[in-house]
């Protein structure tokens, strides 16, 4: 009974999915999907190497400090870093007084309450504060940016396919829209107020090119601040903001993996030892059981006939 019901249920599903299949195919043949500009012109992130890549990678604190400087002087005007605290900068090699000064002089102040009047006010940041958001709320952010919302950058390296390579490619990928694209897809012409960037999923983004000229920031360590360098540095910095415990994780990982490797090998040897005993206890002596012997004989005859 179960099999009969099952058979018909099976037929129903299989039949239905085949109907869908043929309708789908017919539709595909009748109206082949049109090429889209996104599909044809979107580029995967560039190949770029960061010091923190790979299982043995380490953050380059010099680079992270430079990246922080780029964030502070270029990105921070529009993009928040609200999951990161000033005190976290200690991991980049900043000393406590430096962190205090950075927090104190941060261009955006922290929302607070006027102690005398109770009205909304702002105060200077302290190391325990998170980086204050450049906008009080989403409406303000959109209003200030032509209705586009600048995303918070704290997790951007983990929240985008491609991670740091994506941010680097995006920052260095602005270009004129290819004439070929406009020719082929007139509707996909970059609208007024947007900027063409083939690394952005839908090719046009609202952010104007943020890194435009060499020397836009002046690095304290004397590194030449080319656009490429700045993009790389800030991308490296954003890897850190997304995963500040990266190095702790890998260090712990090596210890754990080595420990487990030794333990597993020991466990395997102990297992072999224990089972060796079981294998010794049951040994093959004498002829096969009568039934099996007959079977073996029959098979031999069988083969003899076949051969």
């Amino acid at each position: 009974m179960v099999r009969i019901i099952g058979f018909f249920v099976g037929l129903a599903f299989v039949g239905m999915v085949f109907i869908s299949f043929f309708v789908n195919i017919a539709d595909y043949v009748a109206n082949p999907p049109e090429e889209t500009a996104e599909h044809e012109f979107h580029k995967h992130p560039k190949e770029v190497h960061f010091a923190s890549d790979g299982p043995f990678g380490h953050f380059d604190n010099q680079q992270l400090q430079r990246g922080f400087q780029v964030y502070k002087e270029v990105c921070a005007a529009c993009h928040g870093l609200t999951l990161v605290s000033f005190r976290d900068l200690a991991a980049l090699g900043y000393e406590e007084p430096e962190i205090k000064a950075i927090a104190d002089q941060w261009a955006i102040q922290v929302p607070s309450v006027n102690a005398d009047t109770g009205e909304a006010a702002t105060r200077k940041a302290i190391p325990a504060d998170r980086f204050p958001s450049p906008y009080p709320n989403e409406v303000a952010a959109r209003a200030a940016n032509n209705n586009a919302l600048p995303p918070d950058l704290s997790l951007i390296a983990k929240a985008r396919e491609g991670g740091a390579a994506y941010t680097y490619s995006l920052l260095t990928g602005y270009q004129r829209q290819p004439a070929e694209l406009v020719h082929k897809f007139p509707a996909a012409k970059t609208p007024q107020g947007l900027y063409y960037n083939p690394y952005f999923p839908n090719l046009n983004l609202a952010m104007p090119p943020p890194l435009t000229a060499e020397g836009q920031v002046t690095y304290a360590d004397g590194t030449r601040a080319s656009v490429d360098q700045m993009a790389k540095d800030v991308s490296a910095f954003l890897v850190w903001t997304a995963e500040p415990k990266l190095q702790n994780r890998r260090t712990a990982g090596f210890a754990v993996v080595i420990f487990l490797l030794i333990g597993t090998i020991l466990g395997y040897l102990a297992y072999r030892q224990i089972w060796a005993e079981a294998k010794r206890k049951v040994r093959v002596t004498g002829p096969l059981e009568a039934e099996s012997q007959a079977k073996a004989q029959a098979a031999k005859d069988d083969q003899g006939v076949a051969g």
Binding site: R250, A252, V256, T264, G267, W275
Partner: peptide, 28 residues
């Protein structure tokens, strides 16, 4: 016990090792 505890034990070590490779080196 001890035959399958030993077999399960060492093999669990191996699988946890692979799990830890994900956990510590490519958690996302």
């Amino acid at each position: 016990h001890p035959f399958y505890t030993a077999k399960d034990g060492w093999f669990a070590g191996l699988v946890i090792l692979i799990y830890c490779l994900f956990l510590f080196f490519m958690p996302n």
